[in-house]
Nucleic acid binder design. Structure first.
Lengths: 232, 232
DNA sequence: GAGTGGTCTAGACCACCCT
DNA sequence: GGGTGGTCTAGACCACTCG
């Protein structure tokens, strides 16, 4: 494992284990260098990683400090799709509505940057968080990249399967948010009256090569979902 | 100005001016080093900056490539509050509803991490984007940090005033999103029927020292606002 | 195997905070 | 002025892609 990630992980664990509060001062660069026996740049990189994750903040001339999220029960908007990460103590599960192979609509073809002749896997699922309905997800995977899916795989985390079984990793993503009342088709899936408010998120995931392989349209249950986002 | 920011800016301008498409290949490290006459680490840092902004993506063993946002008319969720940045060609303006000094409610005190004896400026505004109602904003500033505000300042970008006149810069922020139907009090301000769907964002802005100085409750007009977010 | 990005080092020097 | 984080360098070596 890379040194800087190793160190980042250790510092994060220290914060977790010692339950350090917001604003707690962490060891200085010099101390970290001698603790971990690495160069200053490696420490710099480890801390930059933690800073961009929102775990710490650095103040020039002063020190390195713990940054904590104030509110509980909010879903990190940066979190990768699916339920790979249940770090926050959520229990995520899903119910499959259907899985099929289709030829893409214009919308899908445009987002996956493919032609209407390419085949795509289409998955529709209801996702649950701690047993409550979280969202309705319609997700499309390029078959040329993800050659095989079945009901069993799709019941669990699709991204986990893709990464472990296929060795394919999402490298970056675009997310588009808008608000819209629930229509009559979708409302029953979320067990809400139609015209309830709903957050719609379109997501596109890309390979390291910049090729999109997944496009998802997700509709969130408005009373069971809330989100947070930390910026620098 | 810092070298790595200078270089990042130049590369971004090059993308803009030459209107390079998604996936266009940029010069290699070696070329960039000789073009800008700096060390490899400086190039690395410049590119890391651009990558985290979503302007490029890097592929090991292959090259550096342009990343473009596909959809237009979406507001960057990472964008700092207010209308400091109208880079995307939006025209932003505001109408003041009131400006006053208050003692904080529990909610405000908790988010600003202050006591109920501390005074805060409270500003309520309607924000417009290209002449259409964008959102209703209620914003609270610690008077101990922002000692003076008046109607004129508040009509424009408050953050711009704070930065230029006071030399105070926001260093990081927390944002909390949830969906809720509009209540009867807020609906008229957005010129929408009550119970319309609405995105509510609570924002807290921090100084470099980690002290919060601003807390805002923002309610977005659901047909006039949509957002995007790029992750890595 | 050539080309290209990523990690890591050791050390110089700068910018800022605090007392 | 002492302590602390931030920038920058020159160079070694590693990991990945692609023809």
């Amino acid at each position: 494992m890379l040194k800087y990630l190793e160190i980042a992980k250790k510092i994060e664990e220290k914060i977790q284990i010692e339950n350090l509060p917001q604003g707690a001062k962490l060891p200085s660069f010099e101390e970290l260098i001698s603790t971990y026996q690495v160069s200053k740049s490696t420490i710099t990189k480890a801390l930059a990683t933690l800073e961009s994750k929102g775990s710490i903040f650095q103040v020039r001339g002063s020190g390195i400090f713990v940054r904590r999220k104030k509110r509980k029960g909010y879903i990190n908007l940066h979190m990768q799709q699916g339920f790979t990460q249940d770090t926050e103590g959520y229990k995520l599960s899903s119910k499959l509505i259907w899985l099929k192979i289709i030829t893409p609509t214009d919308e899908i073809a445009s987002n996956l940057n493919c032609t209407k002749e390419d085949e795509v896997y289409a998955v529709k699922r209801i996702m649950y968080i701690d047993g409550k309905i979280l969202c309705l997800e319609e997700s499309f995977y390029k078959k040329s990249i993800i050659p095989y899916l079945n009901n069993e795989i799709v019941q669990d985390s699709i991204f986990y399967y893709i990464e472990t079984a296929l060795g394919i990793k999402a490298s970056f993503s675009d997310k588009y948010l808008h608000i819209q009342p629930l229509n009559e088709d979708d409302a029953p899936y979320l067990d809400l009256p139609s015209n309830s408010p709903a957050l719609h998120i379109d997501e596109v995931y890309f390979l390291t090569t910049g090729e999109p392989f997944n496009f998802s349209k997700i509709i969130y249950h408005y009373t069971h979902s809330q989100f947070f986002l930390q910026s620098n």
